[in-house]
Simulated scan of single mutants.
Amino acid sequence: MKIGPATQPTTGISGSNPETIVIRGHDLVGELIGRISFTDHVWLLVCGTLPNDAQRRILDATLVAIAEHGLVPSVQAARMTLAAAPEALQGAVAAGLLGCGSVILGASEAAGGLFSEVVALHESLGGALDMAASEIVGGYRREKRAIPGYGHPLHKGSDPRAVRLIAVARELGVFGRHSQAALAVERVLPSVIGKPLVMNISSAIPCVLLDAGYPLLALRGVTILARTAGLIGHLLEEQTHPIGFAMSHAAASAITYDGPAPPGFVANEN
């Protein structure tokens, strides 16, 4: 049974014959290899056109900003996977990426959706941007939805990465309505939810990318791509300076067993 629309299946990303490989209309060998950067190529693959200088630099800046994040759960999963299966680098990378969702890496995509809602409401109703931001954030609040991209357990006063990305967007001339919406959300949060929350990196990345013309539906791919590079760095270190089993042992030592047990049993993982 056929599922889906009855259309001729096609792709506009790549094609080839024995002599030529075409990527988004460009000859891979004659036009791209050795002539463009990987950041250029990512933009081409996703957006269908080569980026201008500002688009290239803003995508590059976001990738640099989020590639490394310390020993977060995705990194720990990757390093412990490699410790257990040292022959499976690809499996360890996959283990790290499979743990990326609404809490880790997914917040940028959600924040991008929030800013798009604010921009759309402002364009339809007019008035002050803060009014549109307040209405959208209030709706999130009434529906008991988290406000993605705001607040940070360490960077209380401001997230320096977010501040820098907004500054880069201004320098490149791509600071626009989504970044304005992000700042408007930050301004209205105290009155809507009762406390101030600063923009974090997960709100800065989507607003500057959307302003540069990057598609909303591909936002999570930026954070996944960046974090993949970070995971590879950690996995190289795991091979030369292993800590995977040390992390596993630390976890076992930190967690106390409180389930049923025979009389006199005392858990001791050490």
Score class of each variant (00 low, 15 high):
W43G: 09
P262A: 11
Q76S: 13
E171T: 13
P262R: 07
L59I: 12
Y140V: 03
G101F: 08
G25K: 09
E87N: 09
S253A: 11
T7H: 07
L216H: 13
D53R: 06
L50Q: 00
V119E: 00
I232Y: 10
L235N: 02
A182V: 05
A226Y: 05
G30S: 13
M247E: 13
R227F: 04
D53N: 05
L172P: 02
A251T: 09
V75L: 00
V72C: 15
L209E: 06
A61E: 13
G112N: 07
A95N: 07
E238R: 06
N268V: 01
N200C: 04
L89R: 12
G25E: 12
I147N: 01
T256Q: 13
D211W: 02
I33Y: 07
R141I: 02
G244N: 06
L225P: 01
R227C: 00
I21N: 09
E109A: 06
S134V: 01
A83Q: 10
P86N: 05
P86W: 06
A132K: 03
H152Q: 08
A218H: 11
V75S: 02
L209T: 07
A78I: 02
S16A: 14
L44R: 05
A184L: 11
L236A: 14
A212E: 13
E237C: 12
Y257L: 05
M131I: 09
S191I: 00
L59N: 09
A184P: 13
G127K: 02
A110Y: 04
A133Q: 03
P196L: 07
V137H: 12
A162Y: 09
A133V: 02
Y140R: 08
I58H: 00
A6K: 06
I201P: 10
S116P: 00
L129H: 06
D130L: 13
G70M: 01
K144D: 14
I104S: 13
G176K: 12
V118E: 12
M1F: 11
I58N: 02
G233R: 08
L219K: 00
M1P: 14
I66R: 04
A226H: 03
D211G: 02
V192G: 05
I201H: 11
N200S: 06
E109Y: 06
N17D: 14
G149I: 11
G112Q: 08
P73D: 13
L28C: 12
G149E: 06
E109T: 03
G91T: 15
G149Y: 05
G213S: 06
A84Y: 00
Q76R: 15
D27E: 14
L63I: 15
A78H: 06
L172Q: 01
A169N: 02
L114H: 00
L216Q: 14
L183T: 01
S191W: 00
L197Y: 01
I147H: 04
A146V: 12
C100Y: 14
V42Y: 11
Q180D: 11
A229F: 11
A85Q: 03
A6Q: 10
V168G: 03
D40K: 01
P190D: 05
R79F: 03
G213C: 04
E135W: 06
R177S: 13
R142F: 08
N200P: 12
M131N: 15
A250R: 10
A250W: 09
G113L: 05
L63Q: 13
A6Y: 08
L114R: 01
